[in-house]
Amino acid sequence: MDIKLWRNSPYPDQVRMTDPDHDILQALTAGDHNALGLLMERHLHAIKSLAWHMLGDEMIAEDIAQEVFIKAWKQAPIWQSGNAKFSTWLHRVAKNLCYDRLRKKREVYMDTIPEMVDDTDLAEAAMIMQDKNTSHKNHIDMALNKLPERQHMAITLCHYQNKSQNEAAAIMEINVRAYESLLARARQNLRKLLQPHKKSIVGGFGEHS
């Protein structure tokens, strides 16, 4: 059946020229399952890794990854880029799903949570970490999980996903200055949280503003 589509292409011209996933998206739009396989080969690890770093659970991270790629499959024919690349959109979907899970988790355990980590929280977290005979990796995980979700997301995108500042800001749907501010605060809070373990982390944290 020949159906005239509402729009001929999901991309504005400038994005079509630069998006490395353009061909895959065209094939997805035509209902090609192999294209979904190719898309996953390119982005599944990154999406799963994002969810794993945010939520700390591999099973949940896999569920999130499945939701992201099924959404990509369903919405490919009607997807509109705006100015974003398809991979940026995939990361945004993953980010929003992670925030949803974190909020549900928080609703279960506490009534309110402060947006910023203050010194009292940091000291408390540091004491908890000092009391427990946890491994080096657990110290890092606990410190990361103590960060507010947006700081946690900023450090994940920069350190674990190696995203450029423009792409990370686009994924977080904020401007670059706001992203840099979140990133700087995240690292500052991590230094404070990990300070009690400076011996096990070799040396401690030197000069910082």
Partner: peptide, 18 residues
């Protein structure tokens, strides 16, 4: 001197990579 602390933090974060 400036890099020292952040190099350690980077290494600590590397330990948490998937």
């Amino acid at each position: 001197k400036t890099n020292a602390g952040d190099t350690i933090l980077d290494k600590a974060l590397d330990a948490g990579a998937l």
